[in-house]
């Protein structure tokens, strides 16, 4: 069951990214480029996505997931260095190519060699991240 639900969720996510135009790097960079020909689409996508998701969070109250287990607890509101540093690095990459993890997957079959290079480089970065993080924590301990 979990596998089927995950497949449905992934398919809906992919359809949403395609329909919304978020697989188009020009729309993402156009939204980030406040000094250029600004494209507001991404704000509508975010707004549209947050509505069903907020309802879903409300529905989790007093219930359990359909396929069993528990709902994820709300994380402690601790910010910390890794959250800020990571988000800045991610934002730089996102701006450079106009791709983030979801759309890079959704467009993998029609994004040419560049799309494959992006996903490969992203996987490499994800693979290296835990040891980079451990090294940084040793050199400059986060409080």
């Amino acid at each position: 069951m979990r596998t089927i639900f995950a497949l449905i969720s992934g398919a809906l996510f992919g359809a949403g990214l395609l329909v919304s135009g978020m697989v188009d790097t020009a729309k993402v960079q156009g939204w980030l480029d406040v000094f250029g020909d600004w494209d507001p689409t991404l704000a509508f996508v975010m707004g549209g996505a947050i509505v069903p998701m907020a309802i879903a969070w409300q529905l989790t109250r007093g219930r359990k997931p359909l396929a069993g287990g528990e709902f994820p607890p709300k994380p402690e509101a601790r910010l910390g260095r890794n959250l800020v540093l990571g988000s800045v690095l991610f934002g730089m990459g996102w701006g450079l190519a106009g791709l983030c993890p979801g759309p890079s997957m959704a467009s993998l079959t029609f994004n040419g060699i560049g799309g494959v290079v992006f996903v490969g480089a992203m996987a490499l970065g994800m693979f290296a991240a835990p040891s980079l993080r451990a090294r940084l924590d040793r050199a400059v301990p986060a409080e």
């Binding site: 890794n82 959250l83 800020v84 540093l85 990571g86 988000s87 800045v88 690095l89 991610f90 934002g91 730089m92 990459g93 996102w94 450079l96 190519a97 791709l99 983030c100 993890p101 890079s104 560049g114 290079v117 992006f118 996903v119 490969g120 480089a121 992203m122 996987a123 490499l124 970065g125 994800m126 693979f127 290296a128 991240a129 835990p130 980079l132 993080r133």
Partner: peptide, 15 residues
């Protein structure tokens, strides 16, 4: 593209 991919990969896992 490669630089962007590495930044996205490392950054999202840090964050």
């Amino acid at each position: 593209i490669a630089a962007a991919g590495i930044l996205v990969g490392v950054g999202t896992r840090f964050a």
